[in-house]
Design a protein around this nucleic acid. Structure first.
Lengths: 104, 104
DNA sequence: ATAATAGGCAACCAAATGGTTGCATGTCAA
DNA sequence: TTGACATGCAACCATTTGGTTGCCTATTAT
């Protein structure tokens, strides 16, 4: 879980996920196109995404195909984001309530 | 948005959010209790959470009260996580489909 | 066979990160 | 008013991070 959060912390990596979301199964070379980074930098980013299980790869001859795995993202939504949804309504009102309470 | 992702990337900071989720409006001192970190380290983490607008503070005399702001978390759920939900069903099947296509 | 193509590996670098210590400031209570 | 308490500020440190360059290997096409 921590690896996923860390992987998502970088904008370049999120951009790579976006690209794969737009078109799945791209090669390293394709993913590099138009990016202001060297291929090696992209390789490293993809390695981190792979380690976090956000991307699955598949060698096909001399090319490496990259596939998005949306499961960890979904898990963060389920296990983490949802936990804070409930509080949303009460948060601001609670702030005001406590503010008044403390100022008695 | 980037600031939020980066803020959430650290386990200590997520733990602090958890603590505030359990009990809102804690002081710095309270948030430090039982943590294997100096107060100053916690201060820095809270500063990052505050900069990402995940935490709102309120001075009350010599204490500083910390309040969780769940809005940015919710936004990540809405604007980012949800985008990848749709792909979930097709991802693995597409992988297999492309696998077969490429091997022709 | 050989050249071009796709990718991998390793060393290196600057900057950011997460943490520390030491001291200063503001506020409350006796 | 004076000490204790809650927090702030700044310098410093080691490690991680995001990136580079240079070279090596494997596969494909001519």
């Amino acid at each position: 879980m921590d690896e996923v959060f860390r992987a998502l912390a970088d904008a370049s990596r999120r951009a790579l996920l976006d690209r794969l979301h737009a078109r799945n199964g791209q090669t390293l070379g394709e993913l590099c196109d138009g990016l202001a980074m060297t291929r090696q930098a992209v390789t490293k980013h993809l390695g981190i995404l792979e380690a976090a299980n956000l991307v699955t790869t598949l060698r096909h001859g001399r090319e490496k195909l990259h596939y998005l795995n949306p499961v960890p993202i979904h898990q963060i939504g389920e296990r983490w984001i949802k936990k804070f949804e409930r509080g949303k309504l009460t948060a601001l009102s609670e702030l005001k309530r406590q503010l008044e309470k403390r100022d008695e």
